[in-house]
Simulated assay, not measured.
Amino acid sequence: MKKPLLGLSLEELAAELAELSLPKYRVKQLAEWLYQKQALRFDEMTSLPKKLREQLDEMYDITAVEEVDRLYSADGKTSKFLLRIADGILVETVLMRQPYGNSICVSTQAGCSMGCAFCASGLHGLIRNLTPGEMFSEVAYVLRHLRADGEGLHSMVLMGSGEPLLNYENVMAFLRLLHADYSIHLSYRSITLSTSGIVPNIKRLAGEGIPITLSISLHAPTMEQRTELMPVNRTFPIEEVVEAGRAYGRDTGRRVTYEYILIAGFNDREKDAEQLAKLLSGQLAGVNLIPVNPVAEKNWKRPTRQAVDAFQRALERRHITATVRREMGADIAAACGQLRNKHIEK
């Protein structure tokens, strides 16, 4: 069986191909074909000698994804792709055309084990972690899609299916690969990682020396409410999560974003805003308010626009910066996991 090459760093490629006695420049050329040009086959790598291309083709495989389905929003700004990895696993990837540039939302796991009450990603549980190469193949697929339209990629969010900090080593390798000069050289400051609050790995991330933006899924101001929404709160209580976020902002100088899904009648009241402001006071942070995306399998209701605005004003009166997430793809089931679930249930 052929071994995958996609996902290996330049140093790892050199070690893997040591028996071929390649000069360093040849290894770098190969890396550039894999990552900068997103080649799908070795015979596309025309700057490499034909014999080497044939050797590589005999020994190795380039991890690629196959499109299973795609949806476009009515405004043309959001594209959602359902992709199949080599072993048949399905993952979702979303392209968002924002005013500040094109952004991709990447999945880090197939499925999810978090079991959040408002999310479709975990309805069928966790299947497995994605490798750095599989995560890069999501990006490569979207890059080829953008290149066909004469466009490029400007930012990335790890907010697709899965909990990135429970796939820590693979995610860190993936981020370093994206940033490398032989790859797409995406700025760390253009990357946001979203977590449900895996406290030990938030602390670990702060020491990595990579200035990515941390986004913490908080979604409630009290222990009781958050536990009802997010079972992980029993393992990592809300106070510990917020303290880890406070330390991350202090240690990295990067503003932490707290994601807060607004659910009508549950966590969108004046008293909820007051408790949230008290919880977050005195740290380098802001709140991203997200009116809940209706999920057929759940029973949460979306608040009115008036309720959303009132909640935002209540936070700002208490000196908490708050924004309302811009709607992207609500008409194409843009909530994580919905398209994948539809195909699984078929």
Rank of each mutant, 00 (worst) to 15 (best):
L6C: 09
A14Y: 13
A18G: 04
L20V: 09
K24M: 03
L30H: 02
E32T: 12
K37G: 10
K37M: 04
A39R: 08
A39I: 15
F42G: 09
E44L: 09
M45P: 14
T46R: 08
L48H: 14
K51Y: 13
D57K: 12
E58M: 05
M59F: 13
D61P: 09
T63G: 09
E66G: 10
E66Y: 13
E67S: 06
E67Q: 15
R70L: 15
L71S: 12
Y72M: 08
A74C: 09
A74E: 13
G76F: 15
L83H: 11
L83Y: 04
R84Q: 13
A86Q: 13
I89P: 02
N102K: 03
S103I: 00
I104L: 00
G111V: 00
G111C: 06
C112T: 10
C116R: 11
F118L: 13
S121Q: 11
S121V: 05
G125R: 14
G125E: 14
M135D: 05
E138P: 12
Y141Q: 01
V142T: 00
V142W: 01
L143S: 01
L146F: 00
A148M: 10
M159V: 03
S161Y: 11
P164K: 01
L165Y: 15
L165S: 07
M172V: 09
F174A: 10
L175S: 09
L175C: 13
L175H: 09
L175W: 06
L177C: 04
L177W: 10
H179E: 07
I184D: 02
S187D: 06
S190W: 11
I191F: 02
I191Q: 02
T195A: 03
V199I: 09
N201G: 03
R204I: 12
G207C: 09
E208A: 04
E208Y: 13
P211G: 07
T213K: 06
L214F: 04
L214D: 08
T222D: 11
R226M: 01
T227K: 05
L229W: 08
L229V: 02
M230C: 08
V232K: 04
R234C: 12
F236T: 10
E239M: 13
V242Q: 06
V242G: 06
A244N: 12
R246A: 06
R246W: 11
D251F: 14
T252M: 10
L262N: 13
I263F: 14
I263N: 11
N267G: 10
E270I: 05
L276P: 00
L279D: 01
L279S: 06
V287Y: 12
N288K: 03
N288C: 07
N293V: 07
E297A: 06
E297C: 15
E297H: 06
N299H: 13
K301S: 14
K301R: 08
K301W: 15
P303N: 14
R305Q: 10
Q312Y: 05
R313Y: 14
A314D: 08
L315M: 02
R317A: 13
R317S: 05
T321N: 11
A322G: 05
T323Q: 07
V324N: 02
R325Q: 00
R325Y: 00
R325T: 00
M328I: 00
A330S: 12
D331C: 01
I332Y: 03
I332P: 00
A334M: 03
Q338F: 15
R340G: 15
N341G: 07
I344D: 04
